[in-house]
Write a protein that binds this DNA or RNA. Sequence first.
DNA 1: AACTGTGAAGTTTTTCACAGCC
DNA 2: GGCTGTGAAAAACTTCACAGTT
Lengths: 210, 210
Amino acid sequence: MPSNIISSNIPDIVIGRLPIYLRALTRLAQEGREVTSSHELGQRLGISSAQIRKDLSHFGGFGKQGTGYQIGYLIDQLKQVLKIDREWEVALIGAGDLGHAVANYRGFSDRGFRICCVLDSDPQKIGHHVGKHVVQPFADLEKVIAEYDIKVAMIAVPAQNAQEVADQLIKAGVRAMLNYAPISLNVPQGVYVQYIDPVVHLQRMTYYLD
Amino acid sequence: MPSNIISSNIPDIVIGRLPIYLRALTRLAQEGREVTSSHELGQRLGISSAQIRKDLSHFGGFGKQGTGYQIGYLIDQLKQVLKIDREWEVALIGAGDLGHAVANYRGFSDRGFRICCVLDSDPQKIGHHVGKHVVQPFADLEKVIAEYDIKVAMIAVPAQNAQEVADQLIKAGVRAMLNYAPISLNVPQGVYVQYIDPVVHLQRMTYYLD
DNA sequence: AACTGTGAAGTTTTTCACAGCC
DNA sequence: GGCTGTGAAAAACTTCACAGTT
């Protein structure tokens, strides 16, 4: 995910691990813990302690020698680095079964994201409820994106429509997309895509079975 | 995902890309195409052609110099490598909202996987329908796993129960797990886990936004 | 002419190992 | 004694570039 010609000096692979660290740290905090170490974190995550220290060191010294990391402080710092020390408004495209499931998922709000609208191009679906949202026409995309200043979207439409939806989203100013459709998207420089395809994940494991 | 001390000589990262290639190739086939090249595939996927050739070369020569790759043949070969030239029976644990969504997802069956049972430990849910399945008690896990010879499971339970469920699954003989709960699982050597956490994916992108 | 498969080169990522601090 | 942060070493991964094949 480089995408900028003048890329910052922090490797994408490091950024990719930070949300995992954050998730584990949040859990530790919930357990009432206040301090942890790269060793403990590594044990929990199946990652070497050296890697965790090296990753975190990219952003300056978050830890204390001899002591470890203050969990609350580290959580705050990582949220700042990842720019989730705020709440991002997210557009959800697609009001089918998958769209319903995504809209009803409770886990977004306390981790930096809020679904602010649901759009679909099917006239049958427009006006109906999905979660607490009323489905709006996809044709109104530009208006809705501008209204909420949306930079992030989730694509939950059939594979055959996903690229077209992505193109429209980009035209409307969306810069980051989470694609649930089982298809690779073509996007220009400066637009970021992540994929969720459960089958791909399953297929990555069967190779290792007898 | 090494996990075996005597690991084969094919890098995990290569195995991880094969399902992506397979997905793109299947799409090309649907479009009626019969032959493709590493260059074309790379263009579609945003991957260099050299990488695709190198990846595929780990398994012997699938292509023809001067011509490219026969799509149907390559699909068959990749399916064989990934061991999805068969259908894997998958247990789904968790009959809540998420479990319902996963159970109703249509995309598993034509890509090598079949949900064969849905289990939950909540007495309220047992006996009710989820998709076309009747929810069975999680206590019957061992029996069900043995009955279908299940090696693969999907975990769609709350985070706080996920580790316990994973432990039970492993005890019952499951070797590969797709975890929808937002938590890292501890598993022994020889057990494979993949994660689906949409928030992690979103958090991997916001860093790159203004 | 077009394309694969592949050693070699180049780059990135991970691990090592230890100085410095609590 | 326990832990971080970090250069240096090692390992892994990607790209280059071209011989060889159709």
